[in-house]
């Protein structure tokens, strides 16, 4: 029963397909977002334990919490991904203002 890993892998493949096949800058940004989601999902499903509770210890409960380390790393990853998407989008806006197009084939030409 490894369906979360398979699903994360499928999501990664869709993102990779989107990056490779589409020529629009925004489609490429969306593909990078999808790949980021898949990595986050994979890390969280690695840390999950059947019947585990949230990693918030209150009182003296004996239940097993799920892995807090991976969750902390994924929080970092989500926020950094947001910052990276904002930067990529601003580069795309700048390229559109220069070339009036977001097609990567058309903005190949260098211009000052």
């Amino acid at each position: 029963m490894n369906f979360p890993y398979l699903a994360a892998l499928a999501l990664f493949s869709v993102g990779l397909y989107c990056i490779l096949v589409k020529r629009d800058l925004f489609k490429i940004i969306y593909g990078i977002c999808l790949m980021g989601y898949s990595i986050n999902l994979l890390l969280i499903s690695l840390g999950y334990v059947w019947g585990g509770t949230v990693p918030i210890i209150s009182g003296s409960s004996t239940a097993v919490p799920v892995d807090p380390l991976l969750q902390a790393m994924v929080i970092t990853a989500i926020v950094i991904e947001f910052a990276a998407v904002a930067l990529m989008v601003s580069v795309a806006i700048r390229l559109f203002e220069q070339y009036r197009s977001t097609d990567v084939k058309k903005i190949r030409r260098l211009r000052g």
């Binding site: 949230v54 918030i56 929080i75 989500i78 926020v79 947001f82």
Partner: peptide, 12 residues
């Protein structure tokens, strides 16, 4: 530190 949430969510 006592409940779900955190600095990142609050800031955003």
């Amino acid at each position: 530190h006592t409940s779900p949430g955190g600095a990142f969510a609050g800031g955003v």
